[in-house]
């Protein structure tokens, strides 16, 4: 990669200790996000797409065992103490979530909550200046009449406006990386379009690296520069957005794309079966139990990402299957 990555993750593993055993939610994820790019992270429920980034942010509970490395600049986040994490969170890396209402405090004015974020990383700043900055931030994310709105409470905001407030808080300290975890899933499509535009504008104007976690392939197609597809805690395919959608070599990615309703097709093609139980993921390629192309060799080693045609694909049969496409 050319410039220095805004966020660099190596062999990240997350295991949850539960009464039933160890849930291997993330099993060796590596990635780099460059400044100003949008990395789309796609996968179905339980693929580990959210957990990977919650782990990086130090937001998982005590039953989570995190291994590997996640670096923002020179700062290592895996295993970092709370003091380091507090310095980095909100300052270098910020995160927004699906449900902005539960992330906002109902008894504090919205403006005060944004100002609190500003003050958290600018200890010398006066309260008045922080309040002014908060209004500015609300304006940047497209909230009309920001002065009045700053004095209101979260319940007076609609879903889309609340998500804008979350974005205002997230960008308060000009972070290098913005992690957006299903930011528009709870919103209506017309409002989703507005929020995606705000995120895109911030990326362009501030050069923020954006990690966009979503299950919606349409959102990824619209927003992402590069995409990585996750399945059962691993990255199974990675490519620039055009190659991923048009020249995918992984049977899971192709299955996902084929299961979408498209124009003029009478029957949809579901992927048979269901994602594996991560207490005991299948040996070798976790997708092999649902894969139409599975062969005995798929049960061997866990496949690594290798360059096939235009994508990096974690499938031992990708070279042979290429002929079948």
């Amino acid at each position: 990669m050319s410039t220095e990555s805004a966020l660099s993750i190596r062999d990240l593993r997350v295991t949850f200790k539960t009464l039933l055993g160890n849930v291997q939610a993330v099993r060796g994820v590596s990635l780099d996000v460059q400044p100003g790019e949008v990395l789309g992270v796609v996968g179905e429920s339980g693929s580990g797409k959210s957990v990977s980034f919650l782990a990086v942010m130090g937001l998982l509970g005590r039953n989570a065992v995190i291994e590997g490395s996640a670096k923002v600049g020179d700062t290592e986040l895996v295993g970092a103490n709370q003091r380091t994490l507090r310095k980095v969170r909100g300052n270098n890396v910020a995160m927004i979530f699906q449900d902005p209402l539960s992330a906002l405090n109902p008894v504090h004015r919205v403006g005060a909550q944004v100002a609190e974020m500003v003050l958290a990383h600018h200890h010398g700043m006066s309260k008045d200046d922080a309040a002014k900055r908060a209004v500015e931030l609300l304006d940047i994310v497209g909230i009309p009449q920001p002065e009045q709105r700053a004095r209101q409470y979260a319940h007076e905001f609609s879903g889309g406006m609340r998500q804008r407030v979350m974005i205002a808080m997230a960008i308060a300290n000009d972070p290098k990386v913005l992690i957006a975890d299903e930011p528009t899933t709870a919103l209506d499509v017309t409002v989703q379009a507005q929020i995606l535009e705000v995120i895109d504008r911030i990326r362009k104007e501030m050069g923020t690296a954006v990690v966009l976690i979503t299950h919606d392939l349409g959102v990824v197609a619209r927003m992402a520069d590069r995409v990585q597809v996750m399945y059962a805690g691993r990255v199974v395919e990675r490519a620039d957005v055009h190659s991923l959608f048009h020249q995918s070599d992984h049977p899971y990615t192709r299955g996902l794309l084929a299961s979408q309703p498209t124009l003029g097709r009478e029957r949809l093609s579901p992927i048979p079966g269901a994602p594996p139980n991560m207490l005991q993921p299948p040996s070798g390629c976790a997708f092999r139990v649902r894969c139409a192309h599975a062969a005995p060799e798929c049960a061997g080693d866990v496949p690594e990402l290798i360059q096939v045609r235009r994508t990096e694909t974690a499938c031992v049969r990708a070279q042979e299957l290429e002929a079948l496409v």
Binding site: G159, V189, T190, A193, G218, A221, H242
Partner: peptide, 27 residues
């Protein structure tokens, strides 16, 4: 029209070329 134009489609070429009718505000 606006509703249809707001639905993202799983095709980056279509997505990057299409014209969107952006609605202001919410319901």
């Amino acid at each position: 029209r606006a509703l249809l134009s707001a639905v993202p489609q799983a095709d980056p070429i279509v997505e990057r070329e299409r014209q969107r009718i952006m609605l202001q505000g919410e319901v």
